[in-house]
C-alpha cells in the first residue's frame, strides 16, 4: 500500500456520505415517513385484533411496541442500497479509495438516523395508546435506543446480499429475522421487567454488548457482501 494513508480522510468521506443521505431523506419526506406511518398502523392493529381493555393491553404493550419497531425497520431496509444500485452510485462507492466498511457504516448510520430515530420518537406515543405503565417508559426508550441501530446493522447484511435481487422485500426479512431475535428478546425483556418493577440494567447491558459486536462485525460483512454481489 504505497499511498500515504494520512492523505485519505476516511472519516470526512463517511460524514459526507451521511450528510448526503440525510439530505436525500429530507428531500423525499413522503418516502422517509413510511416507516413511522407503518409503525403507527401496526401498533393500532393489536387493540383492534385482541382487546381494547386496559389490563390485557398493558401486558402486551412492551411486545407490541418493540415488534412494531422491528417490522418498521425491516420495511425500510430495502431502500438501503437499492437506490444507489439503480442510479450507479454503488459503483462509485465501491471504487472509492476509502475503506468500504467505513463508508458502509456511514450508510447504516444514515439509515438509522432517518428510520430508527423516528421510531424512537414515535414509540412513547404508541406506548401511551397501549396503556404501557409509566415506570416502563425509560426502559422502553433505552432498549429501543440500543436496539434500532443494531437492527439497521444486522439488516444491512441482508440488504447488501440482495441488492441485485428484484423483489427482495420478503428475502431481506427472511435473512434478517434470525439476527433480530436476540435483540427482540432482550429488548422486550427489559420493558417487561420494568413493567414488573424489577431492574432492567442487565438486559440493556446485553443489548449494548450486541451493539458493540454489531458495530465491529456487521460493516465488514456488509462490505464483503457488496463486493461479491456487485462483482457478479
Amino acid at each position: 500500500m504505497s499511498v500515504d494513508v494520512q492523505q485519505l480522510e476516511g472519516r470526512k468521506a463517511m460524514m459526507g456520505l451521511i450528510r448526503r443521505d440525510l439530505k436525500l431523506a429530507f428531500r423525499t419526506p413522503g418516502q422517509s415517513l413510511n416507516p413511522v406511518v407503518f409503525y403507527l398502523m401496526v401498533a393500532s392493529l393489536f387493540p383492534l385484533g385482541i382487546a381494547p381493555e386496559r389490563e390485557t393491553l398493558s401486558q402486551l404493550a412492551g411486545g407490541i411496541v418493540w415488534i412494531g419497531a422491528l417490522l418498521a425497520v425491516l420495511l425500510s431496509l430495502d431502500s438501503l442500497f437499492k437506490g444507489d444500485n439503480d442510479d450507479g452510485s454503488l459503483d462509485q462507492l465501491l471504487l472509492s479509495p476509502h475503506p468500504l466498511p467505513l463508508l458502509v457504516l456511514g450508510k447504516v448510520i444514515a439509515h438509522w438516523l432517518t428510520t430508527g430515530v423516528a421510531l424512537i420518537v414515535m414509540a412513547p406515543v404508541l406506548a401511551l395508546m397501549l396503556h404501557l405503565p409509566e415506570r416502563a417508559f425509560p426502559a422502553l426508550m433505552a432498549s429501543l435506543l440500543l436496539g434500532t441501530p443494531l437492527m439497521s446493522l444486522a439488516g444491512g447484511i441482508g440488504a447488501a446480499l440482495t441488492v441485485r435481487v428484484q423483489r427482495s422485500g420478503v428475502l431481506i426479512t427472511l435473512l434478517s429475522l434470525p439476527l433480530y431475535i436476540p435483540v427482540l428478546i432482550f429488548g422486550t425483556g427489559a420493558v417487561q421487567s420494568a413493567v414488573d418493577g424489577m431492574g432492567y440494567a442487565g438486559h440493556l447491558l446485553w443489548l449494548g454488548a450486541f451493539l458493540v459486536m454489531g458495530l465491529c462485525l456487521a460493516p465488514i460483512a456488509i462490505a464483503a457482501a457488496l463486493r461479491i454481489v456487485v462483482d457478479g
Binding site: 504505497s2 499511498v3 485519505l8 448526503r20 436525500l24 428531500r27 442510479d87 450507479g88 452510485s89 471504487l95
Partner: peptide, 20 residues
C-alpha cells in the same frame, strides 16, 4: 487503495442522485 485514488470510472449509469 492507490489504484482507486488515481482512477475515475464513468459507467453506463451516470451515478447522479435525482433529488440532489
Amino acid at each position: 487503495a492507490d489504484f482507486r485514488l488515481s482512477t475515475f470510472y464513468f459507467g453506463h449509469k451516470p451515478a447522479v442522485k435525482a433529488e440532489l
